[in-house]
Design a protein around this nucleic acid. Sequence first.
DNA 1: TTGTACGCGTTATCAC
DNA 2: GTGATAACGCGTACAA
Lengths: 336, 336
Amino acid sequence: MATIKDVSKHAGVSPATVSRVLNNSELVVEKTRVKVMAAVEALGYRPNTLARAMASGRSGIVGMVVPEMSAPIHARFIGEAEKLFRQHRIQLIGASGHCDPEQERDAIEFLLQCRCDALILLVEAIDDGYLKQLANREANVVLLNRHVAGLESQCITLDNLQGSFTGASHLIELGHKRIGCITGPQNKQDARERFEGFQQALQQHQLIQNPAWCVEGEFTEASGYQAMAKLADQQLTAVFCGNDEMAFGALAYCRKHGIAVPEQISILGFDDLHFASYTFPALTTMHFPADTMAIAATEFLLSNCYNIETANSAPVMTYLPTLVSRDSVADISPVE
Amino acid sequence: MATIKDVSKHAGVSPATVSRVLNNSELVVEKTRVKVMAAVEALGYRPNTLARAMASGRSGIVGMVVPEMSAPIHARFIGEAEKLFRQHRIQLIGASGHCDPEQERDAIEFLLQCRCDALILLVEAIDDGYLKQLANREANVVLLNRHVAGLESQCITLDNLQGSFTGASHLIELGHKRIGCITGPQNKQDARERFEGFQQALQQHQLIQNPAWCVEGEFTEASGYQAMAKLADQQLTAVFCGNDEMAFGALAYCRKHGIAVPEQISILGFDDLHFASYTFPALTTMHFPADTMAIAATEFLLSNCYNIETANSAPVMTYLPTLVSRDSVADISPVE
DNA sequence: TTGTACGCGTTATCAC
DNA sequence: GTGATAACGCGTACAA
């Protein structure tokens, strides 16, 4: 593959001049520029990003760690960020952390070796201390969906507590009193927050909180299905699910066992996955603005790390889930 | 960040020796190796992947282009490949082509500038000529889901035609005679192949092929929904869908309009997305082994580009979709 | 077994 | 405006 030297010889100028032309330096006379561009064309020259990074001290690479690249919600994060970054000729590289402290750490170390200019981290298992040290000494870091004390200005988070509070309140307003809950794994922060918001809503309305009505799932359909099996004979009128996938599982259980949703039982999800509108009944759920948050993280770095000002260079750092009403929740409040 | 020179000074050896230790060269005495490793630890040294790539002429980067990184099926491709590559300390970087020739080309050029050692391409719009030239001159290339004459040995494809033939035949064997079809966009190769297989199956069983029974969709739920609207009054007993997403749309239409699936009409999908088992009724569909194919592509490159032999270094290049029977297709064959 | 010196392809800092 | 030249951090012949 042709190098900058090849181009310079072909054009009869110095490598430095070629570099200037390629980097849109003003200090190049039109005639020279044309000559150089012609040589670039003729040789099919492609600047070497690696060499460029070495020389300039900027890699033009942003790394991103998500739990699982193949999970729909994470794919959305990556997809949106990649699209926006590439418009600015910045390469996003992804790595998966699998919610395991060692694997997350390994992923981060790996990205650091690639000399990423910045890191977008959606990590759950790794400890705060490591992240703080990372942010202070090693790299430009944005934390997604995680709150670390001292790093507030770099955390883009979803207000899970407020979101599930809103969701549970919606159920209550519709007349539901016997409300069950399928929570996510309680070793995860977001699952805990979502459970907490649910509990607070019930508490505020002085509703019964029966431990038998709360089952811990694993954020998967299968676990939602099994959780619903345990909840089925508790005479509940509604079930609040920690995420959509468990809600899908719960829905599947109800269909399988002839429990009509929402006539016999209402089901509320959380995340608003793409498929939520195609279940039967279509899932009422709390919308998680993943796209918006991915874009916010991207714009934050574009501005803070690359000095590129975008339409929205001071992105909002905390997002609120909004209720998306579909067909899986019934209004059972007494008729006036 | 510490460099190899810093480490060498700290350890009191030459940079070359540090390099040897880091690359597991045999020519290092144990005592030296310990000294060096201690220095590495002490300084928190991380080898610079970029510099390493420059010096060795190997970037250790594989690029991958998919139509849309946020689409579930593509996310699966990327996720699987990344997982396997990273075990071998190879970085996968993804870019989206959006099914547009210019954007696909741009994505490829961009990856080439990053000096990827190899490219995994899931591109639909770009022309064969460009790909051939690329494969012959520029890089190690694997084509996913695309057959290019002359590049057979580097194409990992799904036998769409055989798959839809199998699917349609299944419908026919179950007694269906009035079978409609919602095809994907006919400017896409896979959509055409799937339609072709469908037609061949009908032809072989001498069934009617009414043009009014075939509607072209766009591989999206919305288009499947609309297509089903056109098909609803054609007295069909089954509809073959070019992919699952359109089948989801068709399912949604049926529910909305009180058409019972599969009692009144059977629906068959194609792809076997994760979500297919959670629709109502659960979707009968043709399984697209995306995970397996992604792993095949990865192993192919591991072997052919990095000389790393894996469990399965001579992967199968053509895959056959298999029928996954769920609940959306009814047996209406006359009782014997 | 270890050290020296050069090259990888580019940018940046000087002179001219 | 343009051209030498020295970095950037590492791998690797070659020498010792």
